[in-house]
C-alpha cells in the first residue's frame, strides 16, 4: 500500500518537474557550452580538444581564453540555478495551489508526501544532469574528436544532479516556510551565491595580505578549496570536479592563475597547489552527504508540521 501511495506521489511530482518551464532552462544551459564549442571550432579558435567535454562540463578551464569562455558556460556552473528553480516550489507550490491539502488527507499521508516529493526531485535532477552530461560527451566528441575519459561525463553529470539536490532542498525549505515559491527561489539563490562570495571575500581579506606573493595565492586557493568543502551547498556541486581531477590528472589539481603576481624572478603566471583531490575528497563527500540529509530532514519536518 505504501509503495503504491509513494508511486502516486512520484508520478505527481515527476509530471510537475517535466512540465515546469525550468525544463527549458536545462535544455538551454546544456546547449550553451555545445554551441560555444562549435562556434570556437568554426572560428578556428584553439580549445582543449582532448578534454573538451570537461571544459564543457565546467570542470576544466582548458588552455586559453576561448576554453575559459566555454568552461564559464559549463554545466557545473549553472547547476545551482536549476536547483533553486526546481527546489523553490517543491513544497510551496502545493501549499499555494491546493495539492498539499488533497494529498495530506490521503493514506499516503504527510510522511509519504515528503519522502515521495524529495525522491522524485532527486531522481529528476540526477536524470536531467546525466542526460546533459551525455549530451556534452557526444557533442565534445563530434566537435573536438576523440576525448580523454569522456565516459565520465554522464556519471559526473549524475553526481552534479545529486550534489545540487541540497541547494534545491534549501530553496524548498525557504519556499515552504514562506509559502511562496518565488521567495524560495530568491532566498535559495541568494544564500548560495552569497555563501560562495563570502568565503572568497573572507579568505581574500584574511589570507591575501600580500596579493603579489605566489605563496599567498597558493594558501588562498587551498583554503578556498577546503572551506568550500566544509560548506555543504558549495561542496555538492563542486564534488564532481574534484573526482575529475582525481581521475584525469592523476590526483593533482591543475595549476591555477595568479592574477596580480608579476614576479620577474619566478615569472610565474600559475601556481601549483600542494593539496591533492584525494585529500579533500572525503571532506567534500561527507559534507555533501551530511548537508543533503540535514536539509532533507528539515523539509520532512516542515511537511509534517505545516498547516494546509
Amino acid at each position: 500500500m505504501i509503495e503504491g501511495g509513494i508511486r502516486g506521489i512520484l508520478l505527481y511530482e515527476l509530471k510537475r518537474d517535466l512540465r515546469k518551464k525550468g525544463i527549458v532552462l536545462i535544455l538551454v544551459f546544456t546547449a550553451l557550452p555545445v554551441i560555444a564549442a562549435i562556434a570556437m571550432k568554426a572560428l578556428g579558435v584553439a580549445v582543449d580538444e582532448e578534454r573538451l567535454w570537461a571544459v564543457m562540463m565546467g570542470f576544466d578551464i582548458g588552455a586559453g581564453a576561448a576554453s575559459g569562455l566555454v568552461a564559464g558556460l559549463g554545466i557545473a556552473g549553472w547547476a545551482w540555478l536549476v536547483a533553486v528553480v526546481y527546489g523553490g516550489d517543491l513544497l510551496a507550490s502545493d501549499l499555494r495551489e491546493g495539492g498539499y491539502r488533497l494529498i495530506a488527507v490521503r493514506p499516503v499521508g504527510r510522511r509519504g508526501y515528503a519522502a515521495g516529493k524529495m525522491i522524485a526531485l532527486a531522481a529528476f535532477l540526477v536524470v536531467a544532469f546525466t542526460a546533459a552530461g551525455a549530451a556534452v560527451a557526444v557533442a565534445a566528441t563530434l566537435v573536438g574528436g576523440p576525448q580523454s575519459k569522456a565516459w565520465m561525463a554522464p556519471l559526473l553529470g549524475a553526481l552534479i544532479g545529486l550534489g545540487s539536490l541540497q541547494i534545491a532542498l534549501l530553496a524548498s525549505a525557504f519556499g515552504a516556510l514562506t509559502r511562496n515559491p518565488m521567495t524560495g527561489f530568491i532566498l535559495g539563490a541568494a544564500v548560495t551565491l552569497l555563501t560562495g562570495a563570502a568565503v572568497g571575500l573572507a579568505l581574500g581579506v584574511v589570507v591575501l595580505r600580500d596579493p603579489f606573493s605566489v605563496e599567498s595565492w597558493r594558501r588562498y586557493y587551498e583554503l578556498t578549496i577546503l572551506a568550500s568543502g566544509a560548506i555543504p551547498i558549495l561542496a555538492g556541486p563542486t564534488l564532481p570536479s574534484i573526482i575529475y581531477y582525481l581521475v584525469e590528472f592523476d590526483n593533482t589539481f591543475i595549476p591555477l592563475p595568479l592574477p596580480l603576481v608579476d614576479d620577474p624572478e619566478t615569472a610565474a603566471s600559475l601556481v601549483e597547489l600542494s593539496i591533492t583531490p584525494a585529500e579533500v575528497l572525503p571532506l567534500y563527500a561527507a559534507s555533501t552527504i551530511a548537508g543533503t540529509l540535514v536539509l532533507a530532514y528539515m523539509n520532512y519536518r516542515i511537511a509534517l508540521r505545516v498547516e494546509a
Binding site: G5, G8, I9, G98, G99, R106
Partner: peptide, 20 residues
C-alpha cells in the same frame, strides 16, 4: 485550487494511487 500542471484525469489517477 488544484495543481495547474496536471489534467483532471492525472490528478484523480495519482490521488487514487495515493490511496493504495
Amino acid at each position: 485550487e488544484a495543481p495547474p500542471w496536471l489534467t483532471p484525469c492525472e490528478l484523480l489517477e495519482y490521488l487514487a494511487m495515493m490511496e493504495g
